[in-house]
Amino acid sequence: MNSLIRTTARCLRSVYMPRQAVWSTSARFLCAAADLQKDLGEMVKKDKVVVFMKGTPAQPMCGFSNAVVQILRMHGVDDYASYNVLEDSEFREGVKVFSNWPTIPQVYFSGEFVGGCDILLQMHQNGDLVEELKKLGISSALLEAGKESK
């Protein structure tokens, strides 16, 4: 359980926006909860964009996780919650069970599972990502860049 708190604390640091106030509550939640699944349900809903990855956005530890970070960066999405699954193996397995998805990274928009690296990449390529971000109220930086060049 201690390791879970450590994970939470580290995740907190990897989140771009300061969310300490929210997190201290959440950390207690994680601590009290044997049901990680319930906590995950809350974690994915708390932020518009949530990424479970190996490493941090500043230091991804796997090519696929890095790809997700780079795609989001291209679209100007910097304000998202990221959780490093390498910090805790129980957490890592719990994330996979929660989404019923066998691999990391995993991306959520508004609490809804979007997919892994392949799906995000294809959404980026076919334009769906711009549309999905729009639904979240996020205007893709690529869209803005396109406007300027016109």
Partner: peptide, 26 residues
């Protein structure tokens, strides 16, 4: 949709994916 397609593949290869470290699909 893409997510559902990938889930079909993941389900089909559920046993294999336990052994595989990284998996890309189209």
């Amino acid at each position: 949709p893409l997510l559902q397609r990938h889930r079909l593949v993941n389900t089909c290869l559920a046993e294999e994916l336990k052994e595989i470290h990284a998996f890309e699909q189209k």
